[in-house]
Design a protein around this nucleic acid. Structure first.
Length: 553
DNA sequence: AATAGAGGCAACCGCGAGTTC
DNA sequence: CGAACTCGCGGTTGCCTCTAT
């Protein structure tokens, strides 16, 4: 077939299809295959037939030989892609089913952008298809301000990964992880995944990575880190506190169909509210990343899927290790009460990177909310300090004790505190969850004590404080007036008083979900936002981000 | 109904990693 | 050990389709 024929047949060819003929060098990047000009652009049915015939005769592989032996004017790479993505047998066509979507989400949470691996779990689906789906999903979620991952997925991933790390790598020092750059996510098999496919075709052998390191990765993630700062900690704690969300597995949706949507909705609200709250000095150039809590200096940002939003910040040039906080974080967070001594805890390690990992920072990037960074860090620090304090105190500490020692405690069984608003900017979900962690964390019971983080002991103290998804929604929040940023959102917070009304408010908020009326959101979504902060936000930070970090050198 | 814009998808490119020779 | 080859991935491009105006 000739270019002319192809053009006629397709009726469309990329502009460079004829103007920039490919010369096969084995990589479709130039060069010549015997001086043959190779075609680019859409494949024609004739070409497909040729390729199919060739593969039938010679089998897959050795794609560069296709052009030589079949008469196709396509480079081997193009042939491989065409075959793999469109011609090979048993390919599924059409939109992803709900089950597939769920699986992809879970797989991505587990593997990150390992499309080929993910495709292995999705018979008939291609890596490119999955990638496109995911990228599309990212865009959609981003637009809608929704968390990339349903909370259950995030939590499940964290929980299981943590369990794995506890068993396999509990003794591995965070520094080792850092230095080895073993940023792969531990092998996590989601329950739902297992349910969907009793026999996984492929279980990657991934380097063991502690949940902490994962979280660190998450911190550096961009595409998934909506509200990451405040939630990273939450996730960690949540992960360490399976009891926090009993039955909170990948199959949670089955049990609570509305939960995910609710989460999404809430997160949307939260995202909007949060975006609004932090749009003090909006920077159009950073709108996207900012809105999603992207770390301007995040290394992952350049490695993530937000290429278009890659920040041109010095931090990026610093090539910070994935587990390091961007300068914007460290420099400012360092001012918070986070004694270096806390590094003894992995958790602390996450919350407070070692000095060596800190980078000089002039200040918070104007594009960065700054407050978000500071808040998260503060929350982490506080949480960490509390955890340590609790750890030192007694293992018999009751949840109440913990609660009393905390500024926040959404895990209180007493729900009269519902009325207390939570500020994403105040101690926010981070602290909120930090406290929760302190009051939960039964997961620790499943871990060998010796492999349990210090704080884990503390968390296990209140294993009986189970926070169901439903409770999550209603997680009461306390406003920590100590935090300056709390004041920043005071107005917003003030609207959240009276949780009883929140039910109605929430309903209204849901009804107006995705609405652009921020004012309305502020008025009706206070509690929702708060709650979303503590939940959906988690979804954004997530592991996948972590996975992204695995791409780092 | 026409048009512009947004979104989705297929395909490509460049690069890096892994494998083979 | 190094080159060649293959594969996978992130990012991008361009076209088609859909939707809002």
């Amino acid at each position: 077939m000739s270019h002319t024929k192809n053009q006629r047949e397709d009726g469309m060819l990329s502009k460079d299809q004829t103007e920039s003929p490919l010369i096969d060098d084995g990589n479709c990047g130039g060069g010549a295959a015997g001086g043959v000009v190779l075609k680019k652009g859409p494949w024609t049915s004739a070409e497909d037939a040729i390729l199919i015939d060739y593969v039938k005769k010679h089998g897959e592989g050795n794609w560069n030989a296709v052009q030589k032996h079949s008469g196709l004017f396509r480079c081997g790479k193009s042939c491989r892609l065409r075959w793999a993505n469109h011609l090979r047998p048993n390919l599924k066509k059409g939109a992803f089913t709900q089950e597939e979507e769920q699986l992809i989400i879970e797989l991505h949470a587990k593997m990150g952008n390992k499309w080929a691996r993910m495709a292995a779990y999705l018979p008939g689906r291609t890596d490119n298809e999955i990638k496109n789906y995911w990228n599309t999903r990212i865009k959609r979620r981003q637009r809608a301000g929704l968390p990339l991952y349903p909370p259950e997925v995030s939590l499940q991933a964290l929980q299981e990964s943590h369990s794995t790390s506890a068993v396999n790598g509990g003794g591995k020092a965070p520094h080792d992880i850092l230095q080895n750059n073993s940023y792969e996510i531990p092998d996590v098999i989601f329950d739902s995944l297992k349910a969907n496919q009793n026999v996984l075709p492929y279980v990657p052998e991934l380097p063991v990575m502690s949940a902490s390191s994962m979280l660190m990765k998450g911190l550096g993630s961009s595409q998934y880190c909506s509200f990451m700062r405040p939630t990273i900690h939450c996730q960690k704690h949540l992960q360490e506190s399976p009891a926090f969300f009993p039955g909170y597995t990948g199959a949670v949706k089955d049990e609570c169909p509305l939960f995910e949507q609710f989460q999404d909705d809430m997160s949307d609200k939260a995202a909007r509210s949060f975006r609004w709250s932090f749009s003090i000095e909006p920077d159009p150039a950073m709108e996207t990343s900012q809105s999603f809590g992207v770390f301007p200096g995040s290394h992952a940002l350049s490695k993530g899927n937000f290429s278009a939003s890659e920040p041109a910040l010095e931090a990026v040039k610093l090539e910070l290790p994935s587990l390091q906080y961007p300068e914007t974080e460290l420099g400012n967070w360092g001012t918070l009460s986070c004694p270096p001594t806390l590094l003894e805890s992995v958790d602390v390690f996450i919350q407070s990177p070692p000095p060596t990992s800190r980078v000089e920072s002039d200040s918070l990037s104007p594009r960065n909310s700054g407050l978000l960074d500071a808040l998260l860090h503060e929350a982490k620090t506080l949480s960490s300090a509390k955890n340590h304090a609790s750890d030192k105190s007694s293992n018999s500490s009751t949840p109440v004790d913990i609660a009393e020692s905390s500024n926040f405690n959404i895990c209180e069984t007493e729900w009269e505190n519902r009325g207390e608003p939570l500020s994403p900017m105040g101690h926010s979900a981070t602290s909120l969850f930090s406290e929760c962690i302190s009051a939960s964390g039964s997961s620790l019971d499943e871990r060998p004590p010796a492999e349990t983080f210090t704080e884990s002991h503390v968390k296990s103290e209140a294993a009986d404080h189970v926070l169901t998804p439903e409770i999550q929604k209603e997680a009461p929040i306390r406003l920590d007036g100590r935090c300056p940023d709390t004041l920043l959102a005071s107005n917003w917070l003030e609207q959240g008083s009276g949780y009883d009304k929140d039910q109605t408010i929430m309903t209204d908020a849901i009804a107006t979900l995705l609405g652009d009326d921020l004012s309305s959101d502020m008025a009706a979504g206070t509690s929702i936002s708060s709650q979303a902060w503590g939940l959906d936000s988690c979804a954004w930070n997530n592991i996948p981000a972590v996975c992204q970090m695995s791409e780092l050198p």
